[in-house]
Design a protein around this nucleic acid. Sequence first.
DNA 1: TATGAATGAGCATTCATTCAT
DNA 2: AATGAATGAATGCTCATTCAT
Lengths: 190, 190, 190, 190
Amino acid sequence: MAKKETDKREAILQASLEIFAENGFHSSPTSEISRRASVGTGTIYRYFESKDALIEALYEEIDGRLRPVTSEGIDLEAPVRENVLGIIGRIFRFLLANPHEFKFLEQYYFSPYGVAKKSSDKESSDRPIINILHRGVEQQIIKDLPSEILFGLCFGPVVFLARDQLYGYFELSNEMVEAVLESCWDSIKL
Amino acid sequence: MAKKETDKREAILQASLEIFAENGFHSSPTSEISRRASVGTGTIYRYFESKDALIEALYEEIDGRLRPVTSEGIDLEAPVRENVLGIIGRIFRFLLANPHEFKFLEQYYFSPYGVAKKSSDKESSDRPIINILHRGVEQQIIKDLPSEILFGLCFGPVVFLARDQLYGYFELSNEMVEAVLESCWDSIKL
Amino acid sequence: MAKKETDKREAILQASLEIFAENGFHSSPTSEISRRASVGTGTIYRYFESKDALIEALYEEIDGRLRPVTSEGIDLEAPVRENVLGIIGRIFRFLLANPHEFKFLEQYYFSPYGVAKKSSDKESSDRPIINILHRGVEQQIIKDLPSEILFGLCFGPVVFLARDQLYGYFELSNEMVEAVLESCWDSIKL
Amino acid sequence: MAKKETDKREAILQASLEIFAENGFHSSPTSEISRRASVGTGTIYRYFESKDALIEALYEEIDGRLRPVTSEGIDLEAPVRENVLGIIGRIFRFLLANPHEFKFLEQYYFSPYGVAKKSSDKESSDRPIINILHRGVEQQIIKDLPSEILFGLCFGPVVFLARDQLYGYFELSNEMVEAVLESCWDSIKL
DNA sequence: TATGAATGAGCATTCATTCAT
DNA sequence: AATGAATGAATGCTCATTCAT
């Protein structure tokens, strides 16, 4: 059954995600991954060429789930502010709701993997958020700053605070999430 | 000679910092650290109980250098805005000017080490920046939000953008640094 | 179909022969053998009990093809010299013309397999060449030496030089092959 | 002590030689080598970059011991026949007296290692035996054949018969060794 | 006190073999 | 009978840590 094959791949990805998030890439032996996924060690290598390839595949999988979160609900007719807050908010909530994914991404980005990835990510410029920000600048609603900076102003606090919450440093109420989003907007609006 | 003893410790810390920043904790064998520090492998264990202890000590050392950066130049007579921008700005510039330290800190915070550390860091509440922010809130110059959130709004963008610059993603001009600082202020001011 | 069954067995033997000759026993996974033979991995185990058994079977198969090369064309009426040169010559040419078989045999003989095999090969004494050599000794045409030594004098150079040619060390012309055969005879003749 | 360092290296080489000769390269785990050498597994890697490098080093070591066996006792004043028989004889006796070395060399030559080695061994032409053979050809004492063939005629039987003896197939008396050497000469002499 | 050779537990990966389909 | 996905024992190699000198 094709079903079963997919199942094992999924089980391995899921197990890796959890274990990587808990222990980090380097403290996550393939033996433990396979045990948690209830497969043999060798089975990992049927689906992924190497541990590195598994990490990359996991990144792609998570990125694939994150991407629609960014784009969905964009309404070009609606005001820029609404769109910006919508995108940041959905990502913020995604990160808060998916701690394993968030921890994985953090590790990934601060590892040789992520660095290589980002360097080759020239397509980042056509991410929806970048377009929206551009429109805001054109409409003189948003400060005339490079998009990287506007991007950092929006996502810096989100990432920073999601982390605080995730590591149990403190608790973000719904109200506070809204306040953060508003503040991000305040930092870029003219 | 007490002098010499200190010298070796320093050499080991310095060598670790460079190598950790370049290769990450897990791709930095103690043998390479000792070689770069021009000491014997065993010598590391005279000054630090283990590799983990070395990492902790290095964190403490960097934190010790970062702390004065935060506190220096604070003038309680001066306006809150000035103080806040001063602190954030000094940290921003410190991170940009000390890439090894920054990369180390990032790794540290996203590893089991950093998590444990932060949880036990209740003293963080008496960091000068927290006090200043509190005063701003009291003076109704700054939004009435939990200090963790105000902190995240100030440092989120700084960390995010320092990272972009460090990994060569783009270049932050002096002017842009100023614009970022102003924007951080915009995000917390009433 | 009995036909098909035989076909698969043949395909597996042929594929093994090629791959063993190219990469050696230990760098020839059963998975690669089955791929080249266009059968499933498991199928190998229908025809052979284990990889070792496959190697043994392959040896038997090649030996079975080599044996007639030795015996064919023997004419007991003809002079000993003619028969000896005929046998050595046919084997020499067989080895030169069948590099895969030759490489396989070399590996086989220099492995635990071959050692075990040869020890139990007491029937070797009734190989035709041995008989011919005996007759030569009786007729006082050939030196009175143990047949193993006469055998070694005949086949040592043949194997040695076939190897040189096979590994591309140099090229044996037809003329040279004849010269070698004559020299082998010179080494055993009285 | 420099002594001890050398000791471990020697112990590893000796242990490898024995184990390789007994079981073959591929059935000789580094763990077993280290056990027999009474060192830690990791120690092997202090002296040799990899198992492959160990095999190469072992070859070089044995080759280094074999080389003088070839050259010693050559007397250019003496008759060619005497020199040729001397060289072949010394090698023959060396192989018979050093079964581990012989088995190792056989494995080595029939492995990717040996093939690569021989291809790059263009210096083989200045081996003493080649020179002697040339002189014999010039003096019209030896057949006018390419040196590779003369070489094969001399060493083919030696290698072949040494093998027979080594694997216990039969026993070579001193007298027989002499007879073989004489026969080799018969095969190349005019 | 300083050294670095030695250690061996731990890891990623391979591959002969099994067995459910 | 045939398949090939699954298995896990086995292997080469790394590196934090120890300890004799």
